[in-house]
Amino acid sequence: MAEVKVFGAWGSPFTHRVELALKLKGVEYEFIEEDVRNKSPQLLQYNPVYKKIPVLLHNGKPIAESLVILEYIDDTWEHGPSIMPKNPYDRAMARFWAKFLDEKGVSTLWKACWIPGEEHVKDKEEAQEFLQLLDNELKGKKFFGGDSFTLADIAGNFIAFWFGIIIEVVGVELMNNDKFPNLCAWIDEFNSSFKEHLPDRDQLTEVIRGRFLEASAAKS
């Protein structure tokens, strides 16, 4: 029986955060693919509150919510790069931006790409404002934490990798180097630094394209 198990979905950026952290720490784990539309009894048992992925199972004890799991991984396995800074202020800032990216990022960018109709213009404007905030924060920085990546950078994986594929599939112009040079530089740094641990881009593109076509058919 594996000491560490991850219950998740291959195409989920939240699951990927957990896998990325474990790989950076050199922790071996067993991945258990979940059907998010037909959740397994095990997943519901291990995460009875939110009933969603990802869940980390370590020595039979479950931990839910990706940001909580990332801190747990950093506290449990000291070898490998640190995810949380040592300085209390820097730790607070890492948590702040990770929470902001988690609560605001995915929903804001998702709506700007997928929600049609009159609200679309408003959603795009909100997405642009969100991206501008990130661009301002990243000015003069390699990562959110400065020269080293932190919890906030891993929490931004959706923007760094998934979002570029989504706007390509949907055909929406939301982000370019002229408008957001600091953010685009961070995206390049993220994808370069974690290249060997990122999902296969072609495969993920097909998954996202399938979801887009499915969503489009449901609205027609």
Rank of each mutant, 00 (worst) to 15 (best):
T108N: 10
F14S: 05
D188W: 02
K39T: 02
D102P: 05
N47L: 00
V169C: 13
P13F: 03
E196H: 07
K61Q: 14
N87C: 12
E30V: 02
G60E: 01
P199V: 01
C184H: 06
F212Y: 15
A9I: 11
N47I: 00
L70I: 10
W10Y: 10
E206N: 15
H120D: 07
I166Y: 02
K122D: 07
D178C: 11
V4F: 02
V18P: 02
W10R: 10
I159W: 02
G8I: 03
K51W: 00
T108C: 13
L67T: 15
Q45F: 09
E30Y: 05
E118D: 14
G145R: 04
A21M: 11
N176P: 02
W77P: 08
A127C: 12
Q132R: 12
D90K: 14
G117W: 06
L133E: 10
I159L: 13
L109T: 04
L20T: 03
L109R: 05
L198Q: 00
Q45I: 01
A215W: 14
V55W: 00
E196S: 11
G145D: 03
N136L: 11
E196K: 13
I115H: 08
I83T: 08
D135N: 15
G117M: 05
K111Q: 13
S66F: 12
K195H: 09
N47R: 00
S193H: 05
K219S: 14
Q132S: 10
I69C: 07
R209C: 07
L101P: 03
V207N: 08
V4D: 01
N176A: 13
K86N: 14
I63A: 13
V36F: 01
H79M: 06
A2D: 13
N136V: 13
V55E: 00
E126Y: 02
V68P: 03
A64Y: 02
I69E: 10
W10T: 14
L198A: 00
R95C: 09
K122M: 06
K52W: 02
L134T: 05
G117P: 04
A218M: 10
F161E: 01
D102L: 08
E78R: 14
G156M: 05
L138A: 03
G26Y: 11
L22H: 08
I53Q: 00
G117K: 06
N157Y: 01
N176R: 15
G105C: 12
L213M: 12
D153T: 04
K5I: 03
D135K: 04
F31L: 08
V106D: 12
L109C: 10
K23E: 11
I208Q: 07
R37A: 12
K219D: 05
I63H: 08
E19S: 10
I83A: 07
K5C: 06
E71S: 08
N157E: 03
N38S: 12
L183K: 10
A64T: 11
P48C: 04
F7A: 06
P181W: 12
D74G: 07
L109E: 09
I159F: 03
I53R: 00
A217C: 10
